[in-house]
Amino acid sequence: MFNMILRVTENPVRRTTARDIAIIAVFAAITAALGLLPAIYLPVSPVPITAQTFGVILAGAVVGGRRAGASQLLFLALVALGLPLLAGGRGGIGVFVSPTVGFLIAFPTVAGLIGWATERVGAPYRLLPGLVVNTAFGIGVMYLFGWVGMMATTHLAPWAAIVALAPFLIGDALKVVIATLTAKGVHASYPGLLRSRTARAVAGAA
């Protein structure tokens, strides 16, 4: 079966290498696997914290903009194909017409932006810039999309949509911090994913 699938592409690959394909596919699957973690309930909010958006931030902070964006796009495609990969075992095309569609559309965008910014900052991965980047895109851009998507589907007034989304913020703030620490840990155990800032590398060596 695997052979049969792979034989279809005989053309040489344009910029995306075989390793890129593998990394993209694996990170789509990591976002899926994180959705399988049991949801955490905090006593202050009825909204469960799931680890799903954690995967979005992590992809950006680990494999760079293009691959991270592609991986989350692939994740959404797999969800659309009917795999139950969203937290709580949801999936199928239905989630793309539901009120949280804005967040889903944000997945590839946010992963791509975080990846782009992380690459700009360069190696070694540091916590403070990482935290700034992950918060700005992982919460700022994510909620902007989520908010617009909610108003578009439910026709709620802007204030009402904010009320509906606010409970999620607590969990997401927590996730950004853990994702940044995790990214640091991954870069430490698997170096070479980020290009180092040459100037700093020279200064560090001297």
Binding site: T9, I24, A29, A32, A77, L81
Partner: peptide, 19 residues
């Protein structure tokens, strides 16, 4: 289009792998 198909099938394969 066939590259799109390849991406989808490798992605589908990776889900149980990473799980």
């Amino acid at each position: 289009p066939e590259r799109v198909g390849l991406f989808l099938m490798v992605g589908i394969r990776c889900v149980p792998l990473v799980a």
